[in-house]
Structure formats: structure tokens, C-alpha cells
């Protein structure tokens, strides 16, 4: 014999959907700007169909049953796409939990015996709650994917190697330096040194908010690696606060050429390459 609740849902599928849509549309947080009502309806209908079709006597008491995997898959797809579209967790939560309200509403109308109603309601609540949990898991996973992609983008954007002069490279570092980023910075810089045959690299850290012992160690590593390649590395853009922290932390930067600004680093680089910047007028005077 089939479970009472399953029979009711199969019979009253339409009513459940209408109820569910009503709850969703009644919510203040409805995002018509992100998803049209038709899309929402078809999404809801797909999920409800899968839910009612898969519901059976064996699995109604067991929210972890493998028969629900198909529904969890659909839910995962929905919540990941919602995370990417920019729905808030609350809105996604309401989507799932309003289904519970709709189902319970229909059960209440159909089952008159309070004892039976309670037992059936409890089962439905358990199942929907487990759906809710897996929805949030995938929702957060979706969000994390977005964050991960953005982190990659930022680290790609923020490590350009600029050729400021023939034989001089500059690398302005913006943002915090961690191990992964230092690795990218180091690789980019060394690769560019090989490609351009530059003998001087200027590492500008005016965009680095703070220097701790780890960041300093990363900087020293980069400088050492550049030196091993046969190029000179100058660190520029050291702000007074950073100079203070470096000294307070007892970091030894004596083997590294440091300059206060990119301009003075460039000047030093010119000096190393035996280049000179001369004013045009002055040059004319000399020739005269």
C-alpha cells in the first residue's frame, strides 16, 4: 500500500505547485530582475516533478536515500546557477523552504486525522531540510568558484612586467604578497628577463600595504633568484612605515639595493648601465 502522503502529492501536484508559486511570489525578496516568473515557474515545476516522481514508500522515511540523488543534482544545478547570478542565500533558502510550506499546506487540507498529519508532516520536513542543507552546500561551492575565479583574475592582472628602458624592467606590485603570488611574480619576472635580456629589474612595492617577515622573505627570494640569473634587482617604493616595520622585525635587507622611489631606482639603474639623462637645452649649449 502506498503511503498516504505520496498519494496525495501525486493527486494534488498541481495544487502543490500553485501553492509553492504563491509562497515564492508573495515573498518580499522576490528577484524579478534576476529571473522572470516564467523561468521560476518552470524551474519549480521541474524540481517538483522530480521530487514527487522519486518519492516512494521506501525512501520517504530516509532523506539520505539514493533515490533522491537525482533531485539533489537538480537542486545543485539550480543553486550553483543562482550563486553565479547573484542571488542572496536568503532568496535561495526561501526557494527550497517554501516548497515545504506548500507541501504541508496540501497535506493539512487532505489529512483530517491529527496524528496521521503529524507523522506525515514530520517526514516531509525531514526530507526538505536535507534538501536545504545540500542546496546551501552547493550554493556556497558556487560562490567559492566565483571567488576563486576572481582571485585568479586579480593575480593575473596585478603582476605586469614593464619594460621601462632598454635593459631595465619594472615590476609594480599591488596588493598583498603571499607565497602563491610571489611565485607568479618571480616566474613572470625571470621569464621576462630571459626574453628581453634585461640586466636590471626594479621591484616597486609602493602598492604593497604591509610588509611582514614572510613578505620580506619572499622579496629577498625574488632578489636572489634575479641575481642568480645574472641581473641586478632593485627594490623601490619603500614607504617610511614599511622601513620601520622591517627594522623592528629585524629583517636584514643589507644585501638588497633599496630605493625610496621608482624615480631614484631608475636613476640608479641608469647609473649601472652608464646612461645619462641630459636636458635638451643644456646639450645644445654644450655643442655651441
Amino acid at each position: 500500500m502506498k503511503n498516504e502522503a505520496i498519494k496525495i502529492f501525486q493527486k494534488k501536484k498541481k495544487a502543490v505547485l500553485e501553492n509553492w508559486m504563491k509562497f515564492q511570489l508573495a515573498d518580499e525578496g522576490l528577484r524579478e530582475d534576476l529571473m522572470s516568473n516564467e523561468d521560476l515557474r518552470s524551474q519549480s515545476e521541474e524540481l517538483l516533478d522530480a521530487f514527487i516522481d522519486n518519492l516512494s514508500d521506501e525512501n520517504i522515511d530516509d532523506p539520505a536515500n539514493s533515490a533522491f540523488e537525482a533531485i539533489v543534482d537538480i537542486l545543485s544545478g539550480i543553486s550553483i546557477s543562482r550563486a553565479k547570478q547573484g542571488f542572496s542565500p536568503r532568496e535561495t533558502g526561501i526557494f527550497v523552504f517554501s516548497l515545504k510550506d506548500a507541501l504541508l499546506n496540501v497535506l493539512q487540507q487532505e489529512i483530517k486525522d491529527p496524528q496521521e498529519l503529524y507523522v506525515q508532516s514530520l517526514k516531509i520536513i525531514k526530507i526538505i531540510d536535507s534538501f536545504g542543507i545540500s542546496t546551501f552546500e552547493t550554493f556556497i561551492k558556487g560562490r567559492e568558484e566565483v571567488i576563486l575565479r576572481q582571485t585568479d583574475e586579480i593575480s593575473e592582472i596585478s603582476t605586469p612586467v614593464i619594460r621601462v628602458w632598454d635593459g631595465i624592467l619594472a615590476l609594480p606590485i599591488i596588493g598583498t604578497l603571499d607565497s602563491a603570488r610571489t611565485q607568479i611574480v618571480m616566474e613572470n619576472l625571470l621569464q621576462e628577463i630571459v626574453e628581453s635580456g634585461s640586466s636590471i629589474a626594479i621591484l616597486d612595492i609602493s602598492g604593497v600595504p604591509a610588509v611582514d617577515s614572510l613578505v620580506a622573505q619572499h622579496l629577498i627570494k625574488t632578489v636572489s633568484a634575479t641575481r642568480l640569473m645574472g641581473a641586478e634587482c632593485i627594490i623601490s617604493g619603500i614607504r617610511p612605515e614599511i622601513a620601520q616595520t622591517v627594522v623592528h622585525l629585524g629583517i636584514d635587507l643589507s644585501q638588497v639595493v633599496t630605493k625610496a622611489s621608482l624615480a631614484s631606482a631608475l636613476k640608479t639603474a641608469f647609473g649601472l648601465l652608464q646612461l645619462q639623462v641630459v636636458k635638451k637645452q643644456k646639450q645644445q649649449q654644450i655643442t655651441e
Binding site: 625571470l190 621569464q191 627570494k221 636572489s224 633568484a225 634575479t226 642568480l228 640569473m229
Partner: peptide, 15 residues
Amino acid sequence: VVVGMQPAVAITLVE
């Protein structure tokens, strides 16, 4: 004088 060190080699040595 050691010349022409590959970037990967330089990173390895530093590490």
C-alpha cells in the same frame, strides 16, 4: 661567472 641560468633553476636554488 655562471651564465644563462634558467628561471626554473634560479627559483629552485633559491627555494
